[in-house]
């Protein structure tokens, strides 16, 4: 397997591990951890898309020429995605605290105020 293949494999595995946690775990916090793992996987995938072998960081300098830098766009995208992910996680955790205060449990099987 080439080196870039390792990244793709790792990224997709992370996405699937996260999805598995979201779909099967009963603890709300574990679901949120799964969400974060999935997000890391997607970010890793985006970063590996812009990877160029033996290239340097895309910062304007004497060493960086158009041919030997990695693609900067995925890095900008991932930076945005990380910030969005932080916002989502922060909001989700604060709502989870609220859920725990009202129901005294984080087990999603027992949080069943809404039915029908």
């Amino acid at each position: 397997m080439t080196s870039i293949g390792v990244y793709y494999f790792g990224a997709i595995s992370l996405i699937l591990i996260g999805l598995y946690a979201i779909l099967t775990k009963r603890n709300l916090l574990k679901i949120l951890v799964g969400l974060s793992i999935m997000e890391t996987g997607v970010n890793l995938l985006l970063i590996s898309v812009g990877y160029v072998r033996n290239a340097t960081a895309p910062i304007l300098s004497d060493y960086a020429t158009p041919t030997n830098v990695v693609d900067p766009i995925p890095q900008a995208l991932v930076l945005t995605a990380i910030v969005i992910g932080v916002a989502t996680t922060a909001l989700a955790l604060s709502v989870a605290i609220n859920v725990y205060e009202r129901y005294n449990t984080l087990d999603i099987e027992k949080i069943r105020g809404l039915r029908g």
Partner: peptide, 25 residues
Amino acid sequence: GEASEAGIKYLIVSSVASLMVLFAV
């Protein structure tokens, strides 16, 4: 409690959907 429950449900569904959109991107 029900509002927080609905809120977190909506948040998780939306986040998974958006992450899949990002994956496709």
